[in-house]
């Protein structure tokens, strides 16, 4: 676990990384590291970020490093593609059971009545749903473990070379800034170099997908997608560097908070973790012992309402 981290909402319109850095490393003149592999080929386009933070910035170029590794190490590229296909399959299979379980619990929650039998069914359906999520996380973990055991990416020279350079860049940085973007790309590329491990216990400011990656579980969500029914699903375990929180970036656009049962189910499914809505201007701070949210940062409440996250 980190001793200090700040999670933020999207930074395109309301930029608050600078005050977050100022709060975590106020008088530190050392550079800050930027990891933005989730931006993929736009990773190097960091001028707006540099202008905003007004500090020396070291771009770790995580995405580009992995691209270089793929060019040199075709075997690893093929192995990672195969893992990608396996993960997609595991996710699809999980989704089949998940959809049935969600349908059942939604129906149970929609039934009128307060009798013990209905309450018992609702409780058991929720436990089953949480169990399906947990089993999925374990299966994905198994995929990663088998991949690591077979291909030992950290021991490959192609990876070691880039990792050494990355470690040097990260060396004296005061803090790490973890940007958003494509969550799977971000997670898997950071993991390849163990960026969080190299960074150690120095402070982290993370936003959008970056914030999701720091948490114990990565939850994918959209209540009104153009295709399908919008079943919230767990992707896999995150880095687990901050506890008891599910980060939900762009929540205003993605979560239907007008429907209390939807809010209630979301919150209860991931309890005791807090489901925090990371919209423009949202900020929640971790000090190694507890969370404290800035006013205006909200969470999904187990009673079905959106509440101040600091309440």
């Amino acid at each position: 676990m980190l001793t200090s981290a700040i999670l933020l909402g999207p930074q395109r319109h309301v930029r608050i990384v600078k005050p977050a850095l100022d709060a975590l490393v106020p008088d530190d003149r050392r550079p800050v590291a930027l990891a933005s592999p989730g931006w993929e080929e736009r990773e190097a386009e960091d001028m707006e970020f540099r202008d905003h933070v007004g500090r020396e910035v070291v771009n770790l170029e995580v995405w580009a490093r992995v691209e270089r590794i793929f060019e040199r190490d075709r075997e690893l590229l093929a192995a990672m593609r195969e893992r990608h296909d396996t993960l997609r399959r595991v996710q699809e299979l999980y989704r089949l059971r998940l959809q049935g379980a969600l349908q059942a619990i939604r129906e149970l929650m929609g039934r009128p009545g307060k009798d013990v039998w209905l309450a018992a069914e609702r409780h058991d359906a929720l436990v089953m749903l949480q169990g399906i999520d947990a089993q999925h996380v374990a299966r994905v973990q198994q995929v990663h473990e088998e991949f690591e055991a077979r291909w030992r990416p950290a021991e490959r020279s192609s990876v070691q070379r880039e990792k050494r350079e990355l470690q040097q860049r990260l060396g004296d940085c005061a803090a790490l800034c973890l940007a958003g973007g494509h969550i799977a790309v971000l997670l898997h590329r950071l993991r390849l170099f163990d960026v969080l491990g190299l960074h150690g216990d120095r402070p982290v400011v993370a936003w959008s997908a970056g914030a999701m990656a720091l948490c114990e579980r990565i939850v994918l969500f959209h209540d009104s997608p153009p295709q399908g029914g919008g079943c919230t699903e767990v992707m896999e375990a995150g880095f687990g560097r901050v506890p008891d929180l599910v980060a939900l970036p762009h929540a205003k656009k993605r979560v239907d908070v007008s429907e209390p049962r939807n809010v209630q189910l979301f919150a209860r499914r991931f309890a005791p973790s807090l489901c925090v809505l990371l919209d423009d201007g949202s900020r929640i701070d971790w000090n190694g012992a507890r969370w404290s949210a800035q006013p205006g940062t909200h969470r999904l409440g187990e009673e079905g309402w959106v509440e101040e996250a600091g309440a």
């Binding site: 999207p10 958003g180 973007g181 494509h182 969550i183 997608p225 153009p226």
Partner: peptide, 18 residues
């Protein structure tokens, strides 16, 4: 168009949080 295009060309909606 939304239904047709998003079905033919599904976007990375579920995975991208910028």
């Amino acid at each position: 168009l939304r239904e047709g295009l998003s079905w033919l060309f599904p976007g990375p909606l579920w995975l991208v949080y910028e």
